[in-house]
Write a protein that binds this DNA or RNA. Structure first.
Lengths: 116, 116
DNA sequence: CACATATCTTCGAATCTTCGAAGATGTTTA
DNA sequence: TAAACATCTTCGAAGATTCGAAGATATGTG
């Protein structure tokens, strides 16, 4: 009856998949629009090759889906609610951050969670 | 104006802290009751020394708080809502698991989320 | 005080992750 | 077809994580 353990293992896999700042940012970008690798690389100011590697991991865990159009590979969230859930996790960030006020966190929360 | 990056970094820290099945289980145990290290070790069937190491990491990230009574160190969640948020993450587990039906996941969800 | 109990910390090996560089694949353009 | 473009995969070094074992602390007990 080790269901709890199996579920805990799966949850830990999800957390591991999200446990990199670049991947968090990728997901938050994809929350608002489908983008290709270079589109993401531009917005996040990261080398395209690195974005590709992160997408490979997100793809392996079925967190993103790919649509190819010519030489472009467009990505979108498999489950868009994932982005919202991550933003909800900000509740556990507040009070842990040096040099960033709660107001600033609220601003980011709105940018990400937001309709803006 | 790299607030988004700072916030992404903090979120990734949280995910990293949760990115181990034992720590997920520790948090879900603490959701229902305060426990000492051996109490956790018994319930999770893990060596106490390992539980202690995991608690050390959770403590470092202020996810648990310690109360000492004699030689016992009792732990509880700093923010009990954390356990609920983790359970909400199960929404992103379903469909990814081999050998465990959705009914079984639902059962675990109830055990953890639940009033039981 | 000596001893047992409860927990923490340190150490080191095995394993995993990250990241840039280089090479492979597929697509469009000239 | 050659060249440019977009992306993926592989490789290897540097760094981080995990885990048991051993040693350090602190608190009760006889």
């Amino acid at each position: 009856m080790p269901n709890r353990q199996i579920v805990a293992r799966e949850l830990a896999e999800i957390f591991k998949t999200l446990a990199h700042p670049d991947r968090v940012r990728v997901i938050e970008e994809l929350a608002s629009s489908e983008l290709d690798v270079n589109g993401l690389a531009d917005r996040l100011d990261l080398p395209g090759t690195r974005v590709s590697q992160h997408l490979g991991k997100l793809r392996a865990h079925r967190m993103v889906e790919e649509r190819r159009d010519g030489r472009h590979h467009f990505y979108r969230l498999t489950q868009p609610e994932l982005a919202r859930w991550i933003v909800d996790g900000l509740a556990f960030v507040e009070g842990r951050m040096q040099g960033v006020s709660e107001g600033q966190i609220a601003t980011v929360r709105e940018m990400w969670a937001g309709s803006t």
